[in-house]
Design a protein around this nucleic acid. Structure first.
Lengths: 281, 281
DNA sequence: GAAAAACTCTCCATCCACTAGAGAGTTTTG
DNA sequence: CAAAACTCTCTAGTGGATGGAGAGTTTTTC
């Protein structure tokens, strides 16, 4: 609390900045040392000046340039300081939100690779328990199974647009899926019902478009080519009939892309077609 | 999912990067467009390439230089990717922790200004309710009231050292305080007992040095000069006696500096000397 | 199907906030 | 009173962008 002057090196270490940086700040008028030895030119800082250095750090993080900071600090206006601090506080909240989203994205990427690595050969049939999931999507305006390639793209584009409107960021690296109603599926009428992304429950964006997909046993088939979906769905239906599984909910096509970072990836995506089943006892 | 190529502008917008940045990444081999028109030189990107762009962003945030990133991605090693992702995940956790600390620091700064602004004139006596607080500190090795200026500095330095050892960051902008035991205080023996910082309950660092200061009514006196502490403490004691307040706990000297960002601040700090009191009924 | 608007190309210069190092002088430590 | 550790100024260089000029290419619009 009492007079305590620090040479530049101590000041730098205490505040985790470099010595040249402190000199730069001196030059630009951001932080003048409390005392400069007139003979040697040595800079000496007051320990209290580190509050100012904190402030400079906050302001930098708010995107202000050094000259803007110098300008603002020269005004010596405490209300301005308060205003900047509360802006900083808001920014921190926003950053927390983003960091959370970032974390989710990285987790998804890791899981995606994991899954991709362990995905079975194409055509593999299975019966597996799948945990509850949340999906966010829109009804399909056109049936793209019967149509050409462009109708699917069109629907996909609509979804992307909606996602963007609803303030989803990181559209990519969400897995896309489509569904067919139970009724249509059991009748072999493969007519797309909805298109959606798999997401986690607590996502920003319009909640009304969010649906829950229940947990349970699913009959599944894995494919590695998108064009095989219709035939795969047929095989899945046959599989259920042969084994006398009761189809008890809507069919889903889950597009499981790996986290595609390499250009010449041998197998660029795979699908898991799935339908919830029950068993008579 | 199907072939869908984007020109550079769309790709840039979709991934929130600038066009020149994408060109730079192309040049440096971080992200080659899927297709380049041989006649026009126009770059066209595949929508799946944004996973790679995400990856580049993660790697940049991990502090890798562009050439390191190019190098790592050229290896086409998925385990390396996984490794980097999990490092990224750790980094995110660390950032969350830091952001929390940052938030606390900004809050403290704001409160500090608020308080400073509303602090009463020097010599003001008051009786006020003070909420419970947490302090973190060490016993005083020497009594600095009786000693010279340097003994206080020495103790302060010890505290700083301990703080650093215990992994406190942002040492500054914590408020410092000292205490005198109730017994000594009521006898007019102003012998410093402990020196500490005021902190919030959940701080990293050695928990054994953490103490709680109970809430309650406190008799207080405000001062704006550190050298007046001893006489102020005397005045506080007299004040309690005159009003027949029962001193029921240890005396504290709370150093309330504002958030000192300006060099020529008229009043650079103030103290609130305080002692918990009760009243006979 | 022509004109206008919006993109995109390459190449070069510029920016900011630092960092690095040379060469000389100054404190602090033992 | 050396040796070690700081500090000074000054110049140059860094990475990762950003900006503009001038020419060419798509896309949109009427």
């Amino acid at each position: 609390m009492r007079e305590e002057l620090l040479p530049i090196g101590k000041m730098a270490k205490l505040n985790r900045v470099s010595i040249p940086t402190l000199r730069l700040y001196d030059e630009k008028g951001l932080l003048k040392p409390r005392y400069i030895d007139p003979d040697t030119g040595y800079r000496y800082y007051d320990i209290n000046q580190n509050a100012r250095l904190d402030m400079i750090a906050y302001m930098k993080e708010l995107g202000m340039s050094l000259s803007e900071i110098a300008h603002a600090l020269q005004k010596e206006d405490i209300t301005l300081v308060e205003e900047i601090l509360s802006r900083k506080n808001e920014q921190i909240h926003e950053q927390m939100r983003q960091l959370k989203a970032r974390h989710d994205a990285v987790e998804r990427a890791i899981m995606s690779i994991e899954r991709y690595r362990k995905s079975p050969a194409t055509g593999t049939l299975s019966l597996e328990y799948i945990d509850r999931r949340f999906v966010w999507g829109i009804p399909c305006s056109t049936n793209f199974y019967s149509g050409d390639i462009h109708s699917y793209e069109k629907v996909l584009r609509e979804l992307r647009l909606k996602l963007e409107e609803s303030g989803f960021q990181q559209i990519h690296s969400y897995n896309i899926g489509t569904s067919i109603t139970r009724e249509n599926f059991v009748n072999g009428q493969f007519v797309a019902n909805r298109i959606f992304i798999f997401t986690n429950r607590h996502t920003s964006g319009d909640q009304s478009a969010m649906h829950m997909v229940d947990s349970g046993m699913y009959a599944c088939i894995y494919l590695d080519n998108y064009d095989d979906e219709v035939s795969g769905a047929g095989m899945l239906l046959d599989y259920c009939r042969e084994n006398q599984y009761q189809i008890c909910g809507d069919y889903l096509c889950e597009v499981m892309t790996g986290f595609q970072v390499f250009d010449n990836d041998p197998r660029r995506m795979f699908l898991r077609l799935q339908v919830p089943v029950s068993f008579e006892k």
